[in-house]
Amino acid sequence: MRKPLSDRVFDVVNGALLTLLGASMVYPFLYVIAISLNEASDSSQGGTWILPRKLTFESYKIIFVNNDLVSAALVSVARTVLGTVLVVLCSAMFAYVFTKQKYFLYKPMKLIFFVAMFLGGGGLIPVYMLFRSLGLLNTFWVYIIPWMLNLWYVVLFRTYFMRLPREIEEAAFVDGASELTAFFKVILPLSKPIAATITLFAAVAQWNSWRDTLFFTASPSLRTLQYVMMEILQRAEAERMITRAEMLDVALGHLKLVDPMSVRMAITVVTTLPIVLVYPFLQKHFIKGILVGSMKG
């Protein structure tokens, strides 16, 4: 049956508006990619909108031969992979225990949990001093250990676990499974939606994080890609006072006050692309999982 005219008009207008909205969101990415693939000196003159005017991969070459950037990329990948796996695992395990109301430590755990949730953190300096006393400062583990347990993820997992039919778990116990076996072989496989959701959250958080690099590390070998990008982009906006040595080097053409636009855009692409590529694969789980996790347990 043909749709009424009003419906068809609505569809057209709706489609047009959503297309415009979508285009406004996609265009900045296209712009950044176009600049990154354009020759540096040509980019500095502007006028590149969607397609590169002088196509070149020079900016990417500069990035990938730069050992500092490669090292930063490896650190970012390592912390994302390891950090994500551990936070998902630890949060899930903690949440599972937290579903056992008959557990003798349940009430104290609940109290600590809520206190930590609402009053946790303590401020930058106490955290810094804690990390120092734990020997985490200026080590790779400062990216991993403090973030192994996230209380919000625990809430999400717990809510999801509590909605699973108890009979499935009990059937596993009847078959002789231990708590650990039941968790890994029954509960976790059934929790793919919420696990995927939290994997995405955790991966994005780990990948995008740079403040922990800023505050808790000092060694150049521990820099992450986001931190390097932040430095490079900040250099373009930094205060314009420079030293006499730098001024004289600039006058001689030995020092650029700012990295070429195309290199900055290339770094932006390299930094955001991994997460953008991962997201579509987890999207179907994400929507399901976030809805489930948001319900009261």
């Binding site: 500095s44 314009r240 420079i242 001024m247 006058a251 053409g253």
Partner: peptide, 27 residues
């Protein structure tokens, strides 16, 4: 954006500092 315009040679003047001049001149 200002440097981009200056780097095309289509801007006659600006009022400011060496930072902008050196960058544009290099481009």
């Amino acid at each position: 954006q200002m440097i981009q315009k200056m780097s095309t040679g289509k801007v006659f003047s600006f009022i400011g500092g060496y930072y902008s001049a050196y960058t544009a001149n290099d481009n």
